[in-house]
Design a protein around this nucleic acid. Structure first.
Lengths: 199, 199
DNA sequence: GTCTATACGAAGATAGAC
DNA sequence: GTCTATCTTCGTATAGAC
C-alpha cells in the first residue's frame, strides 16, 4: 500500500523532469533529489529507467483521457470543446515557451533515440486526434473529421515549437486567434469554396 | 591546412549525428566511428563538445543561407519561392518522418537542456523567418509580412512534428497541399474577408 | 520498503608519445 | 596533427544491511 504511494511520487517527479529536461538528460539522481528518496530505492519499484518512462507515458495517457473527458462534459458545443483544446496554448504558455509541448517534444526525443516507447508516446497524440475527430463529426463535419483533427493538432504543435524558439507572446496570441477563426470557418454552413480547408 | 579538412569532417559527422540521434545522445565515440578518427584527436580541433555544437550551428546557418540564396536566384516569383520552402516537407519527407525537422528538434532539445546555444539555434529559424517575410513583402503583403512568415514556419513545424509521430505520408501530402492553397489565398487581390488569415 | 555501499561501464576531457 | 593511454565524473544497476 505504501509502495503504491512511493511509486506514484517517483512517476510524478519523473513526469515533470522528463518534460522539463528531457528523458535522457534526467538521471536517477535528479529524481532522487526531487522525491527525497534514495537512488537504490527506485529499483524496488522499477527494474529499469525505461520502465519509469513507460509509467510516465501511462500516466500522461490517463491524464489526457481525463482532461478530454472533462472538456466533453463541460463544453456546451463541439466547437466550444475544440476551442478548449486550442486554449491550452494560452493556458500553458509559460511552460510551453520554456519546454515546448510535452507530447511533441517527447515524441521527437524518442524518435531520435530510436526508443521502443516511441509508439506509446504517439498514442497520446492519437488520443487527442481521435477526440478532436469526434468533435468535428459532432459539428457536422464527419466528411473530413480526421483531416480536420490532424490539422488542429498540427497547428498546435507548430505554435508550440515556435513559441519555444522565439518566446514571442504576440505570436502565440495571434496564432490562437487565427485557429479560432479557422475553426469557425469549418462550420458546415459557413464554409467558403476551398481556400484553406485542411483537406 | 589539413587541420581544416579534418575539422570539417568532424563537424559534418556531428551535424548528421546530432540530427539523427540528438545532441546529448551523440558521444565522441559515435563521431569517432563515423569519421574514422580517434577520440583524442577531437580535442586538437575543439576544446569541448559544446564547441562542436557551436560549429554545427554555424554550419547549419551557412547551409540555410545558401539554400535561401539559391531559391532567391531560382524562383521566378516570390510566391514560387515560398512554395520552394513548403516543398522541403516533401523533399525531406523520409528523414523528417524518422528524425523530425533539424531546426525544430535541436531548438527543443537545447531549450530543455537550458543550453547556452539555444539562442544560436533560434537564429536558424530567424533566417527562414526573415527570408519568408521578404518574400511576402515582395508579394505585395508587406502589411503582414512577419505574421505571414511565422505562420508558414509554424505550419511546417507542426507538419514535421506530426509526421514524426504518425509517419503518415497522406497527412504530409494533404497539409502541403493546404499550405499551397493558403499561400495562393494570400495574394493581395485574392483575399477573402478575414476567415483564416495569419494575422 | 528504504537505505548505504558499491560494481561496472560510458561519458567528456587531458597528457604525452609519435 | 593524430594517436594511445589514462583521469575523473557520472550514469544505470546490483547487493545486502536495516
Amino acid at each position: 500500500m505504501r509502495a503504491a504511494v512511493t511509486r506514484e511520487q517517483i512517476v510524478e517527479a519523473a513526469d515533470r523532469l522528463f518534460y522539463e529536461q528531457g528523458f535522457e538528460a534526467t538521471s536517477f539522481a535528479h529524481i532522487a533529489v526531487e522525491t527525497g528518496l534514495s537512488r537504490g530505492n527506485f529499483y524496488y519499484h522499477f527494474k529499469t529507467k525505461d520502465d519509469i518512462l513507460d509509467a510516465v507515458i501511462a500516466r500522461r495517457l490517463a491524464a489526457t483521457a481525463e482532461m478530454l473527458a472533462a472538456w466533453e462534459a463541460g463544453g456546451e458545443t463541439p466547437e466550444r470543446r475544440i476551442a478548449s483544446f486550442i486554449e491550452i496554448l494560452i493556458a500553458n504558455q509559460t511552460k510551453i515557451m520554456a519546454f515546448g509541448c510535452p507530447v511533441g517534444t517527447l515524441s521527437n526525443e524518442l524518435a531520435k533515440l530510436d526508443h521502443g516507447a516511441r509508439q506509446d508516446a504517439a498514442r497520446i497524440f492519437a488520443l487527442f486526434r481521435d477526440w478532436l475527430a469526434g468533435q468535428f463529426a459532432a459539428m457536422g463535419r464527419a466528411d473530413a473529421k480526421d483531416a480536420l483533427a490532424l490539422h488542429v493538432l498540427m497547428r498546435s504543435q507548430g505554435v508550440a515549437t515556435l513559441a519555444t524558439a522565439f518566446r514571442d507572446e504576440d505570436f502565440v496570441r495571434r496564432e490562437v486567434a487565427a485557429m479560432h477563426a479557422w475553426l469557425a470557418a469549418q462550420r458546415p454552413n459557413d464554409r467558403a469554396p476551398p481556400s484553406d480547408s485542411a483537406a
